[in-house]
Design a binder for these strands. Structure first.
Lengths: 343, 343
DNA sequence: TTGTAGGCGTTATCAA
DNA sequence: TTGATAACGCCTACAA
């Protein structure tokens, strides 16, 4: 009573052994009549196989975990939307982990693979410490990492070069005649924060523009923090010299750009006439904002899909060499840099 | 080798029985020295308990499923963001199901509860058929439904009255002097579509406004479909009489409103000067849009949290009576109805 | 073709 | 305090 029917219940009802029940249920060759009796009993009892018992025996759970910093981030959301159907089609369920970008949490998730509640893991670490890399390499289940990972780490990996992506956007701003290009970054101790910060400086040099630290502010990859960073930047520029001395704002992601947009507007600056704004990630929100935000697509959806496929492949072929899939960034030009007329 | 260490491995290593190992690992009273030996062995071997075996024995998986139409919908996303931490704090993992608003899929999920891979389910059905209700009542694990469910259905339930919510928005439009209030709805065979369609007509009557079917279009609850519906509406009005004859647009959700916003703008109509626009759900996007969209908050986050708590409560207290939690809709006034000046 | 029995990794009972 | 042993529900040799 406490649990539902099991193969024992069915066996008793059908007057056969549990082995026969199992055989019928798994489509193994069985005498016609036995099949009938078993199926009839299973039907009447509303039998559903217990996946836990099945997993214990088969050593496979048909579950895959996805670990990211925060589901609220539209980038991860775009990935999930691609990952989920791929996994579902292959018969896997999706288990979600939010790590709040905490390395400890991420390492916990990796360790928990030893509990064997999933067959594999797709993860997006934001801070790649040595300890994390170790945890990845000793993980008890296949792992696919979305994002950069130290050269030579033996793990399936899907990445986009955000450095060249940021460069695309900067070149675009430069081509529009902008010369005082500010930069709002996320935490520099994260992989994307470090990469984009370095790319900003490198691109300035490549464009022959001076690097002026007063044009740079650091916050976090969210809208609110982006707005605060923009406020600090404007306040400092005002204190420094009066005139904004700023004709473009490169933002390390779209959420920051959206926050900056509000602040600029409130400060009476027109976008893009006074200050052109560009972001990264090309999330839905960027296209929906007003003005729509020029952004660098890092192929979130494609990366998610590729990661899922990579993991599925490894689940069937555990000992192939680690593979790295790379996507090219792509500039999506919208009104926040070129204005309305081109729409 | 193939699997990780088990209590057998540890028992052998520590020179004790598996029963002792289990006792130590579960903190049951054991002799000091045995504890030491077992913990030492477990540490050296990097032992992690197998959750599948544990689940088989304990009949609990520490997993909860969440089933919704589409993770891309910001409403569900807001819910997940609340549900996840509540479950995590209680030691549960979250399994995600996307059903594409397909009743068959939802019934499949309910049936799959018999597989016992989760301890409970939170679901948001869009179309509540008799078959679905049956499936809910015979489900093999506790279910919490977010949304309306037929009177008397014995299931934990969290809801907001979207009828009175829509009425709030309509009264607001009316108070602003709008008299030709159009309506863009989602599929009328969904619970929210039906409720909001009925509420539109009822509210018109309550406001003493005539019901003009030419002001109503039906599409789906997404941005693209909302835009298409808005286009059809404008085209028909233009064909019918030339002048728009429309001074407000009530949208069944925010995504529809965002789509409509684009279309109105492209048609050269100013929002809100020519046409005021209101949506429902109060998703992030509504606040981020330009102009920001007046919306009716149906308490998505709160509903998610309440659902998770309701489920946790039932998991500890399986036989209490079904409970219904209700939230009041709340109007959030933004620029799309009152213009910029009030910001 | 069918049934018996052992094992997947844990927990829990019952003697010793 | 400890160790054998029996479940949990399923799959699968192996033997009949």
């Amino acid at each position: 009573m406490s649990g539902g029917p099991t193969i024992n219940t069915i066996a008793a009802r059908a007057g056969v052994s549990i082995a026969s029940v199992s055989r019928v249920l798994n489509g193994l060759p069985t005498r016609e009549e036995t099949v009938r009796k078993v199926l009839a009993a299973a039907n009447e009892l509303g039998y559903v196989p217990n996946s836990v018992a099945r997993s214990l025996k088969s050593r496979r759970t048909n579950q895959v975990a996805f670990a990211m910093a925060d589901i609220g981030n539209p980038v991860y959301l775009a990935m999930i939307r691609e990952i989920q159907p791929v996994l579902k089609a292959a018969g896997y369920r999706l288990v979600l982990h939010s790590t709040d970008a905490d390395v400890g949490d991420e390492i916990d998730v990796l360790r928990s693979l030893g509990e064997r509640y999933v067959d594999g893991l797709i993860m997006i670490p934001l801070r790649v410490t040595a300890e994390l890399v170790t945890a990845i390499t000793v993980a008890r289940a296949p792992v696919v990492v979305i994002g950069s990972v130290p050269e030579g780490t033996a793990v399936d990996n899907v990445r986009t070069d955000s450095r060249s992506g940021l460069r695309l956007a900067m070149e675009h701003l430069h081509a529009l005649g902008r010369r005082r290009i500010g930069f709002l970054n996320g935490p520099p101790d994260t992989v994307p924060g470090a990469a984009r910060g370095a790319a900003y400086i490198a691109t300035l040099a490549a464009l022959g523009l001076p690097y002026d630290p007063r044009l740079v502010e650091v916050g976090d990859f969210y809208r609110l923090e982006g707005a605060q960073a923009a406020e600090r930047l404007l306040a400092r520029l005002a204190a420094d010299g009066g005139a904004p001395g700023l004709d473009a704002l490169m933002c390390a992601n779209d959420l920051i750009a959206l926050g900056a947009l509000d602040v600029l507007r409130r400060a009476g600056l027109r976008v893009p006439e006074d200050v052109a704004v560009a972001g990264m990630d090309d999330v839905d929100l960027a296209a929906a904002a007003w003005p729509a935000v020029t952004s660098v697509s890092l192929g979130s959806a494609e990366r998610g899909k590729a990661a899922a496929e990579l993991l599925l492949d490894r689940l069937e072929n555990g000992d192939r060499a680690p593979r790295a899939v790379t996507f090219e960034p792509r500039l999506v030009i919208r009104a926040s840099t070129v204005g309305e007329e081109t729409r």
